[in-house]
Design a protein around this nucleic acid. Structure first.
Lengths: 209, 209
DNA sequence: TGTACATCAGTGAACGCGCGTTCACTGATGTAC
DNA sequence: TGTACATCAGTGAACGCGCGTTCACTGATGTAC
């Protein structure tokens, strides 16, 4: 038996409505407080129809991470790979891209920030996997250029550290509003550059400064 | 009318039981999914007795932040102030202290990490206030010693950046277990030292590396 | 000293409500022949 | 072509359950005089 592509598309439209409704409600009251009925109501379907798309809220949350969060992070990874102006340029591009995401989809960013350290282990693991890709891309972008210059190769966890500082800037942008974004942008760029210059300038971090 | 100090002590014993029960349950299912009945049951009091201590779960959460989280962070602040072996020594002390907290009270640290970026604005604000104290103490410890050496004074947000990297180490320690702590410790120390050395070594971070 | 009153943490019964889940059904669409 | 059957997203009724909150009460302790 085949499936009508129109039908498939229609189903995915409803599935997306559930995902978006969840993000909207989670931004206000937190994902873990949401119920299947509340989300279904917000997506304009009957509570029982929820089961046509997900077995429970946890499965929906994983779809949220794999689909929407994954796409957002992939965008940043592409940015990091496509930037050819060296490590410092990559830092500017990635911070700008992340903060642009905060402006265009604040609910998604809030979800990522919250569930990355939330109470559901499966969510933490899934987001860790997604964000590791970004960390690896940043580390590659940093070291590739440095190798050309013959400088010291930084620790492999510098990509992850940069991601952490990046996410903190997003968190503050969410709380402090769009008028603070330029300041937060420069601050995050400065912090990641400090990290980068500290990692490459000194020949040993254990020695006294 | 006076109150019997014995009675007051007894009430505070029950209040503390509610706070600890909440931390235990929140570590498993998330604070925002908890109800007053569930917490009261875990603390061995009747649901209606809850109201003798807190008006609702949000008030309890704020007490959790002001009392338990505040005490934990104060310990770290004291450590930062009491260390006299320079910025590099402060980094070691503070990372060690934070990770010791993860070992001794993992539920509290999970709560701090989660609610710092969770869905309740009042919790985010209260934790931001508490963690700002630590950031300021770190910045002071970093700059005080550097002033003696006549080096460049780092950006004021370096304390906050160090706190963010510190919290990330705690988060990974919670997820990866105690046997990974020594590795995470060295990694966090390295990252914060990179930040510090990058902030003080270069005269300008905008120039090409 | 004794007696009357105030305070206050803890309680059990009761309420209305929203929850997750089950079930049997509808109706549109695709397949077999 | 027409007819019988399969698939599947969506539905409304119904269930038992735990929730937050109210209320009037108990009993221990402190205060007034």
């Amino acid at each position: 038996l085949r499936v009508n592509p129109e039908k498939k598309e229609e189903k995915e439209r409803v599935t997306l409505a559930l995902l978006r409704a969840t993000l909207r409600l989670a931004a206000a009251h937190g994902f873990s407080s949401l119920g299947l009925r509340e989300v279904s109501r917000a997506a304009d379907i009957a509570p029982t129809s929820f089961y046509r798309h997900f077995a429970d809220m946890e499965e929906l949350g994983l779809a949220l991470i794999d689909d929407l969060a994954g796409r957002y992070v992939d965008t940043l990874v592409e940015r990091a790979r496509a930037t050819s102006t060296g490590p410092l340029g990559v830092v500017e591009m990635i911070v700008g891209g992340a903060l642009a995401g905060v402006a265009s989809d604040p609910e998604l960013v809030r979800f990522i920030l919250a569930e990355r350290v939330g109470a559901v282990p499966a969510f933490r693991a899934a987001l860790d996997r997604v964000l590791s890709l970004l960390g690896a891309a940043l580390r590659d972008a940093f070291t590739a250029d440095l190798a050309v210059h013959g400088a010291k190769v930084p620790a492999p966890d510098i990509g992850r550290a940069a991601v952490v500082l990046l996410l903190e800037a997003c968190s503050q942008a969410l709380d402090q509003g769009p008028e603070q974004v330029p300041v937060l942008r420069e601050r995050a760029i400065g912090q990641i550059r400090m990290l980068l210059s500290g990692a490459t300038a000194a020949t040993g971090t254990t020695g006294k400064a």
